[in-house]
Amino acid sequence: MSIDEGTARRVAKLARIKVEEAALPALAAEFSAILGFIEQLNEVDVDGIEPMTSVTPMRLKRREDVVTDGNQQAAILSNAPDAREGFFAVPKVVE
């Protein structure tokens, strides 16, 4: 399957990664090569096979629905690029 520039642009947008227009043709070519490699999977007969969800047959564990942690505002904000008044700060999202 060949990926065109429009698809590459759309994927970059979905992934929230800025890609310059000039870089799109090379990116599309790389995607095409990787997806071409992946196409081999179409040779495999997968009729009646369930998609794997877990390598070991294991029921996902559950715990009591109770608070186990908290009161760590300073620790949680300590690595933020911009934290103000106890909150993460971001550019304005509502006009």
């Binding site: 999977l41 495999v44 096979i49 369930e50 998609p51 794997m52």
Partner: peptide, 14 residues
């Protein structure tokens, strides 16, 4: 076409 098929192939590999 891609993700679910790959997970099925993964089941076969196992």
């Amino acid at each position: 076409a891609y993700y679910n098929r790959a997970r099925k192939v993964r089941a076969l590999i196992k």
